[in-house]
Design a protein around this nucleic acid. Structure first.
Lengths: 371, 371
DNA sequence: ATTCTATTTGAATCAGCTG
DNA sequence: GCAGCTGATTCAAATAGAA
């Protein structure tokens, strides 16, 4: 739901800023329960593939030294647990988090999320259209990265704009595998030397889909590993409030410059296809009160197998059953539930018409004359 | 490397058999360092809540078997660590393991693999062509499962048939995302009642690719969660030796019957027919995500009679209509349908350009780097 | 036989409001 | 917090049945 009025906690937030500092310390300094969504692109722990060094700087000879290996994973796990804990504290009860990673770190991140009480909603595969090949031919082309989408807790009523995503995917429900190109060309930020400004800049298309899917305009989106600010750029375009945390001066500078040039899309274009669930509820009885249907009128089931009559209070009566449009439909079909609105029809000029048409009429009137 | 002569350890192995028992106990009874590859499809620990019905009110046949139930994450982790430890002992120094899972368990499996010293080589995404939809519209369609491929240790000289996989993939390096259908139709084994013999039977195509990629003829392949024996069936066809462990009598019976009917392929029939590929579908929303069009941009109809604006989810909005590029076109023309791709134009340098041009651009990119 | 239509089904952590 | 009621929701592929 769109937050028009800021909550007390949110009013203290440093919105649309890039904060300098260690993300754990910064997050702990912000008010608890104030953020709608966190997007995190943490370090992938790639150093594990290189040489391992002991604290005294001597090189670990072989990796048959299980203790050293474990200690290295343990350090990464500690770091992961700490920033996730700080992130979870910041989230509103219905808040959610996205984390992106590769096989080097995503298993440890996923397990830590579950251990801390986050509730995994989906894992999403970003399938790269143009990945870097495996030059040595020793493994499969590493052509994807993994994202985890999790709510703060199992009971959270997380935001998911199902219908908007279905439209985005040409009328078919969005899947857990997303085909998107990596960040290249004009979108890839360069520093003064012409080198890429950040080694792992994510494409805006990825953040676009994430923010359209799991936030609403006005929501607060925090990114603890802000980098060049892709999360902020897309959030600003889409009319979401962002908070970026980044400890590297160079990245903050690039991100600030980038964000200053971004303009928000106009308000109307930010509207997405609304969920049917959000439409106003119309009691069936109102159709009778308004004379659109009359007591005694006959209704026919969609499959023509059943006939019932309307009563003055908006209940239905059949041969051996009475109750609401839903209850009677469910009973006659032997089904656990039934949407009476789409199940029952009346006859107009000899033709069967779903009663939902009458509901749509009422809703159209309500939209014309609100309240 | 092809093992022509069996090692001392391997000579004691019960090859091409299905062993009755708990997989941990059985593995511990077999000689250490004797197996080339392990494929494991362990319980996923799904943690399903209530019943789920399709929109047509039919009930989804859930995986509610006792073998998938664990009392806690800790219990599942203990189980995972135990069977992985037994598996690792069995592997030859250059051996490797594949484990398949979903977001419910794969993070815990992956972390346990790393903690025990296995060396992750790739994570592979099985993208299902025909997954079960998300019936309630509350999440993304869970359209993939994840496999982890890991060698026994970092120093292992694991088997990887790079060129065979490249041929299998029409001359292009095999990627980490594999598009394969789920197991249905004739391949899906039934019991006497005509019900599916196992709730989670994997497709032979998946095992085929795994065994072609990471074993050689004559290699010993062990599956500690044998189920209906897909691993054994494909191994036998491909001339690999298999060992199956399964504690459920019913599954062993089905698997034994299945395996008795399998014949090893002759070399010629090992050639596989490459899948034909049709023009990929490009959702209009992808043009918005990728910034080729922006929310708020105006589109003009081919006949210049209508003007609409693009929204963030890839829907269009006109004076009194909103929906997909096809829906809005059809509505404005009073036509039953409309190809929005050829109907709508945008302006570039003052000239009208059909949006289909942008789709062609994306398809050209996809064709450059197919699959 | 052939074509078209209807039905079935698959590793699924699948609701939200009112009283 | 709980009980009870309302009412929103599916894609691809194989198979079965009808024309």
């Amino acid at each position: 739901m769109t937050t028009k009025t800021k909550t007390k906690a949110a009013s203290k937030l440093p919105l649309n800023q890039i904060i300098d500092g260690d993300c754990i310390e910064v997050m702990n300094s912000l008010p608890a329960g104030s953020v709608d969504l966190i997007f995190a692109d943490p370090p992938y722990n790639l150093q594990l593939r290189g040489d391992l060094h002991r604290p005294d700087n001597s090189k670990v000879d072989a990796v048959d030294d299980a203790w050293d290996q474990f200690s290295s994973f343990a350090a990464y796990d500690k770091f992961t647990q700490d920033w996730l804990k700080a992130a979870r504290r910041l989230l509103k009860p219905n808040g959610a988090i996205w984390v992106i990673g590769s096989y080097h770190n995503i298993f440890r991140v996923g397990a830590a999320l579950q251990n801390q009480g986050f509730w995994v909603l989906n894992d999403v595969v970003w399938r790269k259209t143009n990945p870097m090949p495996n030059f040595r031919g020793k493994r499969l082309t590493n052509a994807h990265e993994t994202l985890i989408w999790a709510s703060k807790e199992e009971a959270s009523k997380y935001t998911f704009n199902y219908d908007a995503l279905k439209v985005l995917n040409e009328g078919i429900q969005m899947r857990s595998d997303w085909v998107l190109p990596i960040c290249t060309g004009h979108e890839r930020l360069k520093n003064e030397d012409g080198d890429k400004a950040h080694p792992t800049q994510k494409p805006e298309s990825l953040l676009h889909r994430i923010l359209v899917a799991t936030t609403n305009p006005g929501d607060v989106v925090l990114d603890p590993f802000f980098g060049t600010g892709t999360t902020g750029a897309v959030a600003k375009k889409l009319g979401r409030e962002y908070i970026g945390i980044e400890r590297e001066e160079a990245y903050r500078k690039v991100a600030a410059k980038r964000l200053s040039k971004i303009r928000k899309f106009d308000k109307e274009s930010l509207q997405v296809t609304p969920a049917k669930r959000s439409e106003p509820r119309v009691p069936f009885g109102q159709l009778v009160e308004r004379g659109m249907l009359n007591p005694g009128d006959e209704l026919y089931s969609m499959n023509n197998r059943h006939k019932v009559r309307v009563r003055a209070d908006g209940s239905l009566i059949g041969d051996d059953v009475k109750g609401s449009i839903h209850q009677v439909g469910a009973h006659l079909e032997g089904a656990p539930s039934c949407n009476g609105w789409t199940y029952w029809c009346f006859k107009r000029d000899g033709k069967k018409v779903p009663i939902d048409l009458l509901r749509q009429q009422i809703r159209a009137e309500m939209a014309e004359r609100p309240n």
